[in-house]
Design a protein around this nucleic acid. Sequence first.
DNA 1: TCCTTACACTACAAATTGTAGTAGGAGTCG
DNA 2: CGACTCCTACTACAATTTGTAGTGTAAGGA
Lengths: 139, 139
Amino acid sequence: MKMQNFKYEGSGLNRFFGPLEAKIMEILWNSIEEMTIKDVQQKLDNDSKANNFNTVMTVMNRLVDKGILQKKALARSYQYSPVVTREAFMEAQSKELTLDLIEEFGSLAVTHMVDALDKVDPGLLDQLEQKIKEMKKDR
Amino acid sequence: MKMQNFKYEGSGLNRFFGPLEAKIMEILWNSIEEMTIKDVQQKLDNDSKANNFNTVMTVMNRLVDKGILQKKALARSYQYSPVVTREAFMEAQSKELTLDLIEEFGSLAVTHMVDALDKVDPGLLDQLEQKIKEMKKDR
DNA sequence: TCCTTACACTACAAATTGTAGTAGGAGTCG
DNA sequence: CGACTCCTACTACAATTTGTAGTGTAAGGA
């Protein structure tokens, strides 16, 4: 389940998926149960205008092909569910991206981190400082 | 000059551009002088197999359309050059991505930063610690 | 048996990126 | 002046990604 891109535009799942893909993942991740295509399609209908069943199916099966969803055969249909939890997904993306960012920009990224942290949530600065201390202590 | 994606695959300019685009930007940024299409094409030829002149032209003009290159009319041709220096480009990407990363992942990213920094270059940890101190002092 | 339902297969559209042909205009050389 | 060369503009096609949806098919139920 290898993502390709991190998009500058959008937010949340839209950074990793197309708009419809994102809505579908959102629905699947919000559901406790596994869902059929029809389930997902109806959820989508609630939110906005009707989506063609086949459209939803195609996109969902593409997500299966990419290893993001898995499907389990029922009598007359399939039940779909994410391969990993949303938390695990976000965790993996965060890890990958953070590493890539530092590999790519190194010292430059460090400079920007402090500003960005301060801008988004100054509390994160303390958290980071704490983490660094712990890391150094363990050596 | 708004980038769309940060690619997980590849490294350097390939994270932002297609393969040929990246080679072309590499050449333009390595050149002190502005360059014509032919200049760039010949540089490309040195590196690998021949590239069609028109191919290089099309890609370069697309980069102009995107606001990444600019072209200046000469008597019989144009001279192309990047709109911003490589350093400014990297600076802007680093800033944008770092901010997006933190907006998107917040505390999660903070956790990964320390590990990533330690893995890539432990010296960056000290640098970061220093930066945090400075930031806090200024308040 | 016939119908409904869910899936499979297929196709098309727009955007992105790489590729390259053709045509035209402008300067050059004989 | 006329033929030639060179550079650009225009155009087009292919592959990939994502959204969209039609048609066919098979299985199960009435």
